[in-house]
Design a protein around this nucleic acid. Sequence first.
RNA 1: GCGCCCGUAGCCCAGUUGGAUAGAGCGUUUGGCUACGAACCAAAAGGUCGGGAGUUCGAAUCUCUCCGGGCGCGCCA
Length: 587
Amino acid sequence: MLKQYILDVTENAVKTAVAESSLGQMKESDEFSLKTEIPKNEEFGDIAINVSSLSRYAKMAPPQIAQKLAEYIKIDDCAITTVAGFINFKFGKTFLNTIISDILNEKSQYGSCDYGQGQKVILEYVSANPTGPFHIGHGRWAAMGSALANLMKFAGYDVYQEFYVNDAGNQIKNLGRSLYIRVMQELGEKIDFPTDEVERKSFYPGEYLIPLAKEFVVEKKAIAESLPKNLNDLQTEQLNELSSFAKMKMLGLQKDLLNKFRTEFDNFYFETDLHKSGKVEACVNKLKEKDMLYEKDGAVWFKSSLFGDDQDRVLRKTDGSNTYLTADIAYHHDKIQRGFDKLINIWGADHHGYVPRMKASIEALGDNPDKLEVLLGQLVNIVLNGEAVRMGKRKNMVTLEDLIDEVGVDATRYWMIIRSIDTTLDFDIELAKSKTDENPVFYVQYAHARACSIFRNASSERVNIETKEKITPLFDKDELEKAVLDADLNLLWNTDNEKSNASAKKLILKLEEFKSIVQAGAKLRAPYIVCKYLQELAGAFHQFYTFTRVLTDDKALAAARLAVVKSVSTVIKTALDILAVDAPERM
RNA sequence: GCGCCCGUAGCCCAGUUGGAUAGAGCGUUUGGCUACGAACCAAAAGGUCGGGAGUUCGAAUCUCUCCGGGCGCGCCA
């Protein structure tokens, strides 16, 4: 990575200068850290380091420090100048050529690194209840989670993706009772959901259960026909049948949709398995042994306030059943037991109050609470015709499937990832659908298609529209790849066209930046950085294209420029793959 | 009331550990296609970084406070 290289060289220069007492009063024990940046003014250079932060140790003015340090820095083919407190580095063609040849050689691996050092990460996201279709918010977690997983894998983490299925508790009973009503309706009974608002809350009156009821009547005919006319007469066994049928069908639908949305989990972890295996009970006992529990008002409480939570939390209710938290504590404990070093969860911001008690449980069980990292995602608003449609109101609820069908998988994924997780996302349906330059996903895909097109044209027959004359292909199909790989990249810089040179240099440095983007994105758990980068890269390429004719009659020169074009399509493809957005060769 | 997130150009947003004159895109105005995709490019205009105070050589960034918006504060899951 160029940035890192420049940093290393400069830091060594500081150490040498200090050892030779050339940096004023700065001592070897003084801890410093430097940072590279891209100069605002291109004339200054390609990369700059601000040394002002050293002035507090050296007791020298920043410009003097920069000048002094510059004397200690020698890099082949790199011009070093100082302006004010900055050391500026300007790369020569050898550096740039190496970037291109690296990309051509490393291909789809270019940009990957060992930053994560194989750290075992379990990334849990979506984890929706199997009681209904996904809403748009789930789409944001699905897109972000899968993109983050891809990104972190690319950066050298060992990522395991898991979906926690909340298939225990009252909600599943409610689901079964709701299916009962739909089944009876299917059988011609005059029965309906309660109209009373409070009673209605313990049902799922959405129409999505109707198709499931139809299936139930066919697949579980005997049971369906044995059902009582009155909900209150429903036997526990019958309810269980209905519940588990609805649950598995819903989960199946959810899995299908995740698949369609290019979100692949390594595992679906069932809450009921946690109970059946005795892990919940074991975990409660463990907390008890550590004296983290007490009884009050007939319930069992966890002393979470000892670890920073606002108050203690109930684990076992007065009716003897466990709270959701109890199972969740056991679940996270189990993640640690399974050997994961890092537990990353993506939760909706509405669950943020839940974080302290979760961390408290990890600490109470004797582990480092920092192993758990919760990414709180702000919610999604749908913007339709310039107006925000409020989520949460059932009537306006748009399902993720509706959105994907309307907008397409590519645009939906891109727009779900494009904003930092900390910002409320306004998802503008019309904008996401538009195939114009207003829509970044098309801007980026277009750049890729354009690069592919140039490459195709290099070895295919075309016809001049004006003269109808055939244009002979520059390269034979079989020689093209080799010609590009063997191209003399020095030819790139033999032109007098300053705009072409400048845009080529900018483009190539942008390609190199991909390495930094992968690291930064993985480190900050922020896939949106990749979107931002892609837009910048696409822009740099469009600019290069405008100023530089790639397919010139000079074959050697064309090969060199094609090498750049190939590098661009390679990096765009890799970055889009991380986002699981398609990189079309034609549009 | 307490907690978390947000407030940056007309609009939507970047701004990585505090550093050069606060940046892209859209929109607006102007200019650019008889060779590779104009679904593109170039240029211009546009800002008290919500207000105020503090820390610092230096603050959009850190601290405090106020204002505005979103979300949460269950023996629900």
